[in-house]
Design a protein around this nucleic acid. Structure first.
Lengths: 204, 204
DNA sequence: CCGGCGAGTAGACAGTGTCTACTCCCAGCC
DNA sequence: GGCTGGGAGTAGACACTGTCTACTCGCCGG
C-alpha cells in the first residue's frame, strides 16, 4: 500500500519489476503488464509511447538497484583502506545480482529492447563506474601491479576490462557455458582469478 | 547456385544466415525466412518443429564460422612457438567477429532463443576452447605468470576468465557502454590490458 | 492402376504492439 | 448552477507473429 495509487505510471513500472523477477523476461509483454496493473492494454500508451520505453523504465530500476546494492555493500563490507577487499565485494555483488535477479539482469543488457538512443539509462551507472575506477587505481597501486607492468594501463582502462570480465562471467555462467568449459560448478575460482589478473594477487 | 536445391532445410538456414547478416536479428521471424526462401509459412515446420530450432540451426553456423575463423587465423598468423602472439590474434578475431557479424553474434548468445536443453550447440566451440586452454597454459608458463602468482590459477580457469573477458568486452562495446565509461573509441587498449592481465605482460 | 506417403499449402487461432475513435468524469469558468 | 474542455482510460481494429491442423498435390512401389 505504499505507493500503489500514485498514478498509473509508477504502478506499471512496479508491476513490471515484480513480474520480471517472478516470471522472467518473456512475461514482460505490454498487454500482460497492463492486465496485472488492472488496466486496459491501451492505457500504458499515455505514459509510455512504446513498449520499449516501458521496458527501459523497468530496466532503469534494475540499474539503480544494482548500483545501490554495490555501493552499499562496498561501503559496509570493505574497510576504507583495503580497496582490494572492496573490489572483492563488488565482484561478488555483481555476480550475485546476475544470478538472483536473472530476469532483470537479462533485461538490463538487452540493448535491442532499451531505447538505445537515449543514453540516460547507461549513465545511471556512471557514478558507480567512477568509484570502480578509483578502487582499481588504489588496489593496483598497493599490489604493485603498475610498476610490474611496464607502462601500466590506466585505471580507467583496467576498470573497463574488469567490468567487462565480470559481465562476461555473469553472462556465460548464467548460460552454463563456463561450467561446461571449466568443468566446475562454483564461480568463486573464476572470480578470484579475474580479480587477481586485473589487480594483481592479494597482498593481505 | 551452389546448393540451393539441396533441400529446403539447408536453404532455410542459408536464408537465415544471410538475413541476419543483412538485416539483423529482429528480421529472423519464421514467416520472413519462409517468405525469402519462397515457401509458405508452414513449410519450415517439416524440418524445424519450432522457431527456436531453426534459430538454433542458424546460430550453429555462427559458432562454426567463428571457430573456423579463429583456428585459421591463429594457425596462419601466429608462430607456433609464440602462444602469446596467437592469443593476441585470437582476441582480435573474436572482437572483430562480434563487430562485423553483429547480428549473428547477438543471436549466438541469446540463450533464450536457442534450445538451451540441447547443449549440442555449446559443445560446438569446445575444441576451440581446449585449444585456448592450451595456449593460455603455454603463454603463462613463458611469461612467468604462474611463479609470480603464488598458487597460480589453473589454465582452464584462466582461459575461462579470459574468454568471459573477451565476451564482456564484445558485448559492452557493441552496446557503447565501454566507450562511455573509458572515454575511448578504440577497443585496442582494452584488449591489450585484458591479455596482459590474464597472461602477464608481453615478453617479446 | 492405385494406394500411400513425403512435401508443401492454406487457413485458423491466440497472442502481440501500435493506432484511433470513443467515453467518462472532473476542474475551471461564465 | 450549468456548460465545456481536456486528461485518463476503454475498446476495437490492424498487421504481424508462432503454432497447429486439414488439405492437396505428385511421385514411387507394388
Amino acid at each position: 500500500m505504499s505507493e500503489q495509487d500514485t498514478g498509473l505510471r509508477a504502478r506499471l513500472v512496479d508491476v513490471g519489476v515484480e513480474l520480471v523477477a517472478k516470471e522472467g523476461m518473456q512475461a514482460l509483454s505490454l498487454r500482460e503488464i497492463a492486465r496485472r496493473a488492472g488496466v486496459s492494454h491501451g492505457a500504458p500508451r499515455r505514459y509510455f509511447p512504446t513498449h520499449l520505453s516501458l521496458l527501459s523504465a523497468i530496466a532503469r530500476r534494475g540499474f539503480e538497484d544494482l548500483a545501490g546494492r554495490a555501493t552499499e555493500a562496498v561501503a559496509a563490507h570493505g574497510p576504507k583502506e583495503d580497496p582490494r577487499a572492496q573490489l572483492d565485494v563488488f565482484g561478488r555483488v555483481y555476480l550475485d545480482f546476475a544470478r538472483t535477479d536473472r530476469g532483470m539482469y537479462e533485461l538490463m543488457f538487452r540493448h535491442d529492447l532499451l531505447e538505445s538512443g537515449e543514453l540516460g539509462l547507461r549513465e545511471t551507472s556512471l557514478p558507480l563506474y567512477r568509484a570502480l575506477v578509483d578502487l582499481v587505481g588504489r588496489a593496483r597501486a598497493e599490489s604493485g601491479a603498475i610498476s610490474r607492468n611496464g607502462t601500466g594501463a590506466e585505471p580507467v582502462v583496467v576498470a573497463g576490462a574488469l567490468w567487462a570480465n565480470l559481465h562476461g562471467i555473469a553472462q556465460l555462467w548464467g548460460w552454463g557455458s563456463l561450467q561446461l568449459a571449466t568443468g566446475g560448478d562454483d564461480v568463486g575460482p573464476l572470480l578470484r582469478a579475474t580479480l587477481d589478473a586485473h589487480l594483481g594477487p592479494r597482498t593481505r
